[in-house]
Design a protein around this nucleic acid. Structure first.
Lengths: 190, 190, 190, 190
DNA sequence: TATGAATGAGGGTTCATTCAT
DNA sequence: GATGAATGAACCCTCATTCAT
């Protein structure tokens, strides 16, 4: 018996992701995914039981990878301000570099494929960010508002910046990124 | 002879909108829209040549209505701060009251129905908001950053707040709304 | 009560006929017929109970008109040869001048609208032609073959000539018409 | 892996043909074709991109097959009269045996599916018949008229005979066939 | 009678999924 | 496991017919 090829699963993920950016969620056809991944249609069903499972597994995968990215570079002994900066830049960086991801997630949340269980499984992935902000509050550096409010505010701003950049309405060079970070910081700082 | 019933067009709009929130864009079937609007399938085609046209007209309609809402209550002689407040609250209010609208717009931008021409037709609708911020900059009250950056930041934050409220992750009472407005204000003020 | 307008019925007939030539039988939509006849869709149903009836009445009408045309100019005292000539030319003339009619009839015979009763009602219309050939046989001028065979042969040839003319594959001037008549005559003459 | 089954394409052709005879061109529904061919609806689309393509490919196929039939039995060294006889009988035979073909072709020429390119592709298929008549003219056996006129006359007559036979208005036994051939021959012979 | 908006059954086509190889 | 032909439910849209005016 041959063994499942992890490269193929990854290729299918990649294909699905790039297709969502290209043709939207409603244009995501299994046959197109297969062609883009250079496998046969039926092969997709070797790795996923059905389209829903493919989409939900892809969601999970994306969330895990992004969560890892957000905390990249965080180390013991860094000041709160430094840690905030790192996370903020990580988040922006990923949003800018992976426009497919945002496209996918936006569509996923509104789609009939959304699975409550899968959703819950990813909630904890943002815990490090919540903790970070609580840490800032404990140090008296961040406004004493519900962290959910702060996270919604910050992530909403960041995602929108990436969207506008992607659609060409703004052009984020290093200066503008720093300006945006300043906006974020000014808003939450005590 | 019966004459075209404007209520029907509106009913179809409403039905389409609420279905997008319910089942997503990819679940938006004309037959379902018709049923929800309490008309026959064919009737939809009396008012719209095809699905694409329905969706684009709905987009235009939503944009126009929201643009009108944003500037509601603005009057001559108000201070910049007051005007900012009004627009900010108007925006939040509409986002909270019309979750279908956000659902529709998010999906529209990613859909194959997106029409460049239709898009352009709505660009000017945000001009009043851009002007307002420029007014604040002229008065030395708002940071001298590209207004696009400011608008992306503010609207991204507001939309995300509405999303989190709608999904139950936060609960925006009057106090929290005021807090959020403070976040916004602190971020852009000079 | 207003009275049915015979001009409208005729206009509908004309519209239907010209549309069949233009778009074929399967492209014959009641709404298009109505538009072409400059009446409202519903008006068609004032004059005909349904599409089938419209088509069958049109068929009958065409058959009657053409049968009248075929014997136009026939008079007492003409020789058989002259009478054959007249009928042959009449038939060709009508086929050439009314390409819509041929288009309609060909499609009608193959269509699900074909009605056995309507068909029978037109059989007698060709009797004069059958009689004419029998007359020729009685005079020893025409081959003693079943007249149906002769009529099929002659009408098939004539219709095809008109078709080729209409499609541009031949160009029937007076000389060629006379040549074709000679072909016909040589074939049936004893 | 299954491979495309050529029998299926042929089965679809057959099904389409017999349906045209049965219910006419406008009654030709892909779903009915599929059922008659004993395949699923979608399978038709494995072999043809759409209805138009099915119809045009069928047209081409029929034309090719009939053109082959017409010259069956022709051999070197046969006299012109023998060759004319063979082709004339071949043509009649096919018309009698394949009434679906005539039904299909008549409708095709009047249909919106008619494709100019496909049409041209079949024009050369009749060349052998044109050549045959020219040969007869060269030998001084056939009237010196445009061969198009002769072909229109002969084929029109033959097709109509087959139609009348099929509709029961005549009954072509061997004697009557010979009579009809004599009609044809008398008409074109010098 | 005349109109054209409204209806809904039905057709062409797509595509998630299955299955024979 | 891999393939892609085969399947058929379901979608968009059309159009004969009806109906309110």
């Amino acid at each position: 018996m041959r063994i499942k090829d992890p490269n193929k699963k990854e290729a299918i993920f990649r294909a699905a992701l790039s297709l969502v950016l290209e043709v939207g969620f409603s244009g995501l056809k299994i046959s197109k995914v297969a062609r883009a991944a250079k496998v046969a249609t039926g092969t997709v069903y070797v790795y996923f039981n059905n389209k829903e499972e493919l989409i939900n597994q892809l969601y999970l995968e994306l969330k895990k990878r992004s969560a890892q990215d957000y905390v990249k570079g965080l180390e013991e002994g860094q000041s709160f301000e430094d840690r905030f900066d790192i996370v903020w830049y990580n988040y922006l960086q990923r949003a800018l570099e992976q426009p497919e991801e945002a496209a996918f997630l936006e569509q996923y949340y509104r789609s009939p494929y959304l699975d409550e269980g899968t959703l819950e499984a990813t909630e904890e992935l943002l815990l490090p960010i919540f903790s970070l902000l609580e840490e800032g509050q404990d140090q008296g550096k961040v406004k004493n508002l519900p962290v959910e409010l702060l996270v919604a505010h910050l992530s909403g701003s960041l995602n929108e910046l990436a969207r506008w950049q992607h659609s060409g309405k703004i052009s984020l060079g290093n200066t503008l990124k720093a300006d945006a970070r300043q906006l974020a910081w000014d808003s939450i700082k005590k």
